[in-house]
Simulated scan of single mutants.
Amino acid sequence: MEAKGSRLPNPVTFVPDLAEIGGALFKATGNGSVPQSTIGLMQLRAGQLVGSTYLAVLHSGNLRRAGESEERIAAVASWRDAPYFTDAERSALALAEAVLTPNPHGERVSDDLYAQASEHYDDKALTTLTMAIGQVCFFVPLALIGKPLPGRSAAEQWT
């Protein structure tokens, strides 16, 4: 069953600064310290974890257009057991999951997880990974509350 429209109209019409904020976040995470494919994989996993079809379709499409294989895109949901990811990518995915998943046994990002990620990423890259998680999380409320239409162009997703 296809959705008839989003819940909200285009939020940029009400808060024009959103376009500038989105652009600034994209520029900040595109600083070259982390491969864009890694950022895309993390953001796809974040969309899956928060249960947003819109974000999952958006980030899957971005990865596909960037040349990622269907196997890697599909396996993000089960990345721990999938053979398609490097140790560095696994560390990045683990950070995204840790931030977005409550931990009943203590802090979400343990010292061990941070140390593991530090083996693959320097301080600039770790900061960039942190911003990439924040970037997708910034848009989570709009995705879940506004419910833009997945798989549509930016002009058509808010109707």
Rank of each mutant, 00 (worst) to 15 (best):
H120R: 01
I21D: 06
E70P: 08
T128R: 07
I73N: 03
E156Y: 05
G151H: 10
A94F: 11
E20C: 05
I39Y: 07
K4R: 09
L100T: 07
Q43H: 04
E71D: 15
L149M: 12
M131G: 12
E156V: 06
V109G: 07
M131Q: 15
A28E: 14
G32T: 12
V50R: 08
P150G: 13
E71R: 14
A94Q: 13
S91C: 15
F85G: 04
P9A: 10
T101H: 06
D123E: 13
D112A: 14
A74Q: 13
V12Y: 10
S69A: 10
A66E: 09
R152D: 09
C137I: 03
L41V: 06
A96D: 00
A28P: 09
N103C: 00
E2G: 09
R80H: 11
A154Q: 13
K124Q: 15
S6D: 05
G151D: 10
L8Q: 00
G61L: 07
A117C: 08
A19W: 03
P35V: 04
Y121G: 03
G61C: 08
R65L: 05
L44P: 03
G51C: 03
D112W: 01
L149G: 08
L144Y: 08
A94L: 12
T159M: 11
I73P: 03
L63R: 09
E107V: 02
A98S: 06
A88I: 10
L63C: 10
P83D: 11
R65I: 00
I39D: 03
M42L: 10
R72S: 07
T29M: 15
G40K: 06
T130K: 09
R90T: 10
Y84K: 02
E97H: 04
M1A: 04
L142S: 12
P148G: 06
V136Q: 14
H59T: 01
T128H: 09
A143G: 02
V34W: 09
N10L: 07
L18C: 02
F139G: 01
S69V: 05
R45C: 01
R80Y: 03
A56W: 11
G67K: 10
D123H: 03
A28W: 04
P141A: 13
R45F: 08
